[in-house]
Every structure is written in structure tokens, then in C-alpha cells.
Design a protein around this nucleic acid. Structure first.
Length: 430
RNA sequence: GUGGCCGUAGCUCAGUUUGGCUGAGAGCGCUGGGUUGUGGCCCCAGAGGUCGUGGGUUCGAGCCCCACCGGUCACACCA
């Protein structure tokens, strides 16, 4: 027997308990996303939260996500393991391992971990939903994927969303451009902060989307990415933009959009919310990649995908006042004044018939039970007192929003109860 | 990792200004009652607090100082 803790345990920093009703809202969000993805022919895939460290090291050795923010540790047998910091690498690893027929169109939802300082919209444990497509190098697929991300947000009712699009060109283009940017900022090195000099050495492209206003003029005068794109990459990009216009997805070109992970090439995009009054306004993003499968031991395979941050999407929904996620209310709440047997039996009977029902345990005054019935959101209160019990009936009292005038209360024979509840307009099948 | 702000009831907070005679308050929520079988509005009553933790200053600390813990916001970075 160990000593009891002197203070209660609490969740770790950056790890949050999601309580009702928020947890239900998340599930509803997931259901909406799944429906949107499956309408487009994507099937669900689920991959481990824990992988060998090497799977994620391919994401980019110059990124903080890999170098500083991963939760990793040695397993008992010495294997280096890591909690995934994002979802793509695991999905691609699964693709390589199982070699499914291509194109492989999957959607994925899951939790990822990064050991950062938490702040609004960013936690150490966070959920993402997204899609990945392996095995297709067609710009029209880029259009499909981007449009799907856009539509998923629109389906929730979000309106104040901006789609930022860019093309990083091919690897050679990106490499040449990176060197040009590095050389450019190297000449301005003394004007950079210590941290920025460090960024310059590790990942110069990141300087382009710094939030520091002082850097603005320097960034504006930096080499332009467009001049470094190959003809082929430029044509791909043009086709993507034309496709977005054709399907009616509004976009903003963002030549400075340089996403964090190393594997991106050609199309990259990000979705930001104008409604979130916080720095973490990126709802999600994604892009095309082609070396990831190879880096994970497979054949070179084209891939593209995106991820949406569930926390941030919900933050945006809050800000826009949409998708409150209210679940269906109960069909009935049983108020039992006879000792509890009626409540016990009636709730069971209604549930067995496919209706939703709840009651208050421990009895209490009728006033108290009616209060609970009201707050439960149930369509009706089913009152069972001595009178009803003797008569084999139940009093069916409509509650708020369901024609709640006192006069509409009525008695129903117990054997007719299920049919009577089914006949109510507010009833829903479960 | 760096910096700012904040920790008083389940929740949101007042009280800290000029430390004191208050045994620490409000609203919401919760429980009971006003309505001996009827919720939502109103009224009454009640339960609920080691004032984050530890140390220090002082005759005296919720209030001042230090440390730690926790939260939050921003930066770096990123979803």
C-alpha cells in the first residue's frame, strides 16, 4: 500500500481532460469530417500513436518538432520510441509496410504530441483530422484535397476562413531557393536577432514567415520564389490554381508560405481563421510530398495530404458562433414519486424500444425531480405517482420548447407509452 | 526554451489601494422550502473556502518580500 498523495493528481501540463459537453462536440466534428471525406472516396485508416523514433526523424532535422519537441524514450529492450508529433509519417509508414493498391486515399483522425509551452490553441496533446493520398501526381488531385479541406470547414458553418496557397517547386528548386535566401540573409546577418541567426543556419526559409515586424522590409526584398520554380513545377502550380477557381474555392497566393516540415514540395497550403483573436490562427495545412515513402524505406511515391487541428477548428467555431455541437436531447425523463421501481422499469423499457430516457437516482422531491427533468433537455417528463400506478398509466408532460402549456399534459396508458412518445414531433431515433 | 500577467467557494470574480477590530464576500451552480403531485421566472434558507504551496517581514498577512508549483498570453516554433 503506497502512501496517499498529499495533493490530488492532476493532468500533466498541456494535457487536457475533455469533459461533456465538449467531448461530444468533438465527436460530432469528427463525424462531419468523416462524412465529407467519405463522400470523396476516402476510407478511414488508423495507425499507432507510438512508433520507432526513426519514423519521425525523417520529417526534418532542421525542425524544432523533431529536434526538441518530440516525446521520446527508450523501450525496455533499448528500442528508441517516440509519440507521434503529427499524423502523416505514421500513415506513410503504414503505406510502405502494407503496400496497398494505389492510389491510396485515406482519412485519419488521431492524437499527436509535442512538448511545447502550451498556449491558446496549442497543447502538448492535440487531435488532428486529415487525409493522405499516396500514388498520384496529378495536379487535379491537389485541387481535390485542398477543396476537401475547405469544404470540411465550410460544412461546420465557418465563413471567415482564408486559404493560403503556394508552390515550393521541386526539390532542386527548393534547394536553390533555400541557398539564395540563405545568402541573402547572410548579408544582413548583423540585423538579425540571435534566434534568427540560428534559424538562418538551420532553416533559412523559416525567416520568410517570421512574425517579427522588424523583419518585414527585409523579407519583402528577399529573392522571389517564383523565379526559382522549374517549368514543370510552375505548370503544375498553374493547373492547381486554375482548378481551384473552377470549383469555386477562393484562395490567396502566399509566396512566403513555407511550411515547417522538410518533406513538402510543390503545392503547400494553409487555412487560417480571421475570427480567432490569437496568434494560433492556423486551422490546418498540408501539401504535396514525394520523398517521405522513400525515406521510410519504400519506393518513391507521390503523396499529398493535410491535417486540421481539432482544437483550433473548434476555437474558430466558437469565435464565429457556429457548430455548438449540441447533441440530441432525451426523449423522456422519468419522474417517479412511488419509490423508484417505476423509474427503473420505465427507463429500461423505453431504452429497449429505442427511445432515450433518463431519471434521477435517489428520488428527491417532485420539485427537484422536475428541475432535473427540465435541465436534462428531455422532450417530456413522464410522471408516475400513486394515481398513475394504480391506474396503470403515466402522465406525459411536455417540457419547454415542446408545446409546454400546462393544459397539454395528458395521461397515457402504460402499454401505449412507447407509441405515444414515437408520435411526438421532437422524438429522434437512436 | 524566453518573457509578461494571474492563482480567494464547483464556476466567474470582488476584497489587495493606505497590512488591523470581518469569525473572508457576491453572482451563478448545488440542496431544501415558499407551491402537502408539477420544471423554466421570483423569493427565503442551507451546504460549500488550509485565500495555490512553503518560507520570510511584522504586535498583526488574503493583502508586503522570496522560492516553488500551477494557469494564462505572447515569442521562438507550429496544427
Amino acid at each position: 500500500m503506497t502512501d496517499a498523495p498529499t495533493e490530488p493528481f492532476r493532468a500533466l501540463t498541456g494535457m487536457r481532460d475533455v469533459l461533456p459537453p465538449e467531448a461530444g462536440r468533438r465527436r460530432a466534428l469528427l463525424a462531419r469530417f468523416a462524412a465529407a471525406a467519405e463522400r470523396a472516396g476516402y476510407a478511414e485508416v488508423s495507425v499507432p500513436v507510438l512508433e520507432e523514433l526513426g519514423v519521425f526523424e525523417r520529417l526534418g532535422e532542421a525542425t524544432d518538432v523533431v529536434t526538441k519537441e518530440m516525446y521520446h524514450f527508450a523501450d525496455q529492450d533499448g528500442t528508441e520510441l517516440a509519440l507521434r508529433p503529427e499524423l502523416t509519417a505514421g500513415v506513410v509508414r503504414a503505406f510502405v509496410q502494407h503496400a496497398p493498391t494505389q492510389p491510396w486515399k485515406v482519412w485519419v483522425a488521431g492524437t499527436a504530441f509535442r512538448r511545447e509551452r502550451p498556449q491558446r490553441g496549442r497543447y502538448r496533446m492535440f487531435d488532428q483530422v486529415g487525409v493522405e493520398v499516396l500514388g498520384v501526381d496529378d495536379p487535379d488531385l491537389d485541387v481535390e484535397v485542398v477543396a476537401l479541406a475547405w469544404q470540411a470547414l465550410a460544412d461546420l458553418g465557418l465563413r471567415d476562413v482564408t486559404l493560403l496557397v503556394n508552390s515550393l517547386g521541386d526539390h532542386e528548386d527548393r534547394a536553390r531557393y533555400t541557398e539564395a535566401v540563405r545568402a541573402y540573409f547572410a548579408s544582413l546577418r548583423s540585423a538579425l536577432s540571435e534566434a534568427e541567426q540560428d534559424t538562418l543556419d538551420r532553416n533559412p526559409l523559416r525567416l520568410l514567415d517570421s512574425k517579427r515586424p522588424e523583419l518585414g522590409p527585409m523579407v519583402a526584398a528577399a529573392p522571389s520564389l517564383a523565379e526559382y520554380r522549374s517549368d514543370e513545377a510552375a505548370a503544375h502550380y498553374e493547373r492547381v490554381l486554375a482548378g481551384l477557381r473552377a470549383v469555386g474555392v477562393p484562395y490567396t497566393e502566399a509566396p512566403l508560405l513555407v511550411r515547417g516540415l522538410d518533406y513538402y514540395r510543390r503545392t503547400t497550403f494553409e487555412l487560417t481563421s480571421g475570427a480567432i483573436d490569437a496568434a494560433q490562427n492556423a486551422l490546418g495545412g498540408g501539401g504535396r510530398y514525394d520523398r517521405l515513402a522513400e525515406d521510410l524505406g519504400g519506393r518513391p511515391t507521390d503523396g499529398i495530404g493535410f491535417a486540421l487541428g481539432v482544437d483550433r477548428v473548434l476555437l474558430a467555431c466558437d469565435a464565429e458562433g457556429v457548430f455548438d455541437g449540441a447533441g440530441p436531447a432525451l426523449d423522456a425523463f422519468v419522474v417517479d414519486l412511488t419509490g423508484g421501481e417505476a423509474a427503473r422499469d420505465l427507463t429500461h423499457e423505453l431504452r429497449a424500444a429505442g427511445l432515450s430516457a433518463d431519471r434521477r437516482f435517489g428520488g428527491g422531491s417532485m420539485r427537484s425531480q422536475m428541475k432535473h427533468a427540465d435541465r436534462s433537455g428531455a422532450s417530456v417528463a413522464l410522471i408516475v405517482g400513486e394515481d398513475e400506478l394504480q391506474a396503470g398509466e403515466v402522465t406525459l408532460r411536455p417540457l419547454r420548447g415542446h408545446g409546454a402549456d400546462d393544459g397539454e399534459q395528458r395521461r397515457v396508458r402504460r402499454e401505449d407509452l412507447v407509441a405515444a412518445l414515437r408520435a411526438l414531433p421532437a422524438h429522434h431515433d437512436h
